[in-house]
Amino acid sequence: MSANHDFRTVQDLTTKGIGVHSDAASLVLKCPRIEKKVPGKEWTGQIGQSQAVIRLPDKEIWNGKLIIAATPAVRNEFSMDLLLSDIVLQKGYAFAACDKGTPRLVLRNPKRQITEWKEHYYQLTLKAQEMLESVYGGKAMYTYIAGVSNGGYITRIMLERYPELFAGGVEWSGVFWHPDSRHLLTCLPVYVQEYPIYANWRGDHTDRERIMAYGKLLEAGLHPDSEPYWHQYFKTYWVYSLWLYGRNLDSDWEPFQKEWHNDWLRDPSPLLYPFQARADILQQHIEKFANTGHLTKPLLSVAGNWDCLITYIHHAKAYEHLVKQAGFAENHRLYEIPRGNHVDGLLKTNQGSQQTVHPYFEAAVNHLEKWVEKDTLPPESGSYETIESFAPIGCSLFTG
């Protein structure tokens, strides 16, 4: 890697200075509070096949730390700007993120694989560390990683595979990829098939059929109290995610070979995926990038128990179980957030009884700092009803 970097000098690295990308805005209910400008340098460019952004506060502001932001879904390198960048920049952190090399519809090409993600984040981390030495004249005292959804998976897999690069991590509703457990390609098909029956869109299903469909939805991980939000997730995530990840992980199944069509949101029957009959194919692919639970560095997990996409039982709890099986429970905490869903941004139009998870994510970053830097143990795993019961004492949150 070259030591010459084409930085852009910026008067304010927060979104108040550089603007808000739509990929970032759609993920939050409210923007974090910005109390001050953060002048510094920004680099944007390509690292391998990924697009990346690296932000370095001025030397007198830098706190000696670096945080790597793991982006969710198939969103771009700016998608963590409101979830994380605005918060940590004001604390003096250097910040780096990339698009995992597969933004938007790249994964519809089966030649591009989820296995790339960790390699892109490995290269990003090395590049960011190189830039720190170039600008500040020294390495970061602590390098952390934090991510959301499939960025939560990245956080887990990077700590598992490259623990030497990181002091610890925080993940929010990380996707659990494991060939021997429930995962997206075994849960989404149930949601897509059974929800239209339960909702009785055509009006031709019996009460018994609807009750049976409801039971299957709960068995696939959905919380019964999250039912008012199922329709929103069907239209926004369930069908599209099944097609995109299914196309990538089982490209030989003929319906997945077709291009996306909005008609599937009205009639998803062409995408009724027989995941049980295709289990061997899915296992073969997922084994290549599966989580192991081998955590030698601290990891704090937060997850809403009303999550309608990455369900609490089949993702957060399943990963906690894997970590325990691997013998590393002392390095992991799981925090259940009552009434928390997957995407805080969807609360803008349909909040109901849901609570935002964003403050818990920020508070978990603070707990991680204290755990790593001051050997102060974080709260025990468990359910935390309010942010006041979870945030560190005396801690003022930018998301509060």
Rank of each mutant, 00 (worst) to 15 (best):
K297C: 11
L334F: 05
F275P: 06
Q257F: 12
G246C: 13
V302G: 02
N350D: 14
P268D: 12
K297H: 13
R339T: 05
R266H: 14
Y319D: 02
D263L: 14
V343G: 09
Y240S: 08
H321Q: 15
L271F: 11
P255L: 08
E362R: 00
V302T: 10
L334A: 03
G352S: 13
D250T: 04
N366W: 09
F328Q: 07
S353V: 10
L322M: 15
Q351Y: 00
P255H: 11
E330Y: 06
H314I: 00
D344H: 03
R266C: 04
Y360F: 13
Y273W: 15
Y273E: 00
A316Y: 06
E259D: 15
S353T: 09
L334Q: 02
L334Y: 05
K258S: 08
W253D: 08
L249F: 07
L265D: 15
H367A: 11
W243V: 05
Y240N: 11
L272I: 06
H294K: 08
L346W: 03
R278W: 08
T356L: 01
L282W: 00
H367C: 11
I337M: 01
F361H: 01
L299I: 14
A316S: 15
N248I: 07
L346S: 00
G304A: 10
L282E: 00
A303D: 10
E287R: 06
W243N: 11
V343E: 13
L249I: 07
T349A: 14
A277Y: 02
P270E: 15
P359G: 06
G304F: 08
D252W: 01
S269M: 10
Q351N: 08
A326N: 14
A364S: 14
H358Q: 10
Q284W: 10
H261E: 15
N291W: 04
G352P: 09
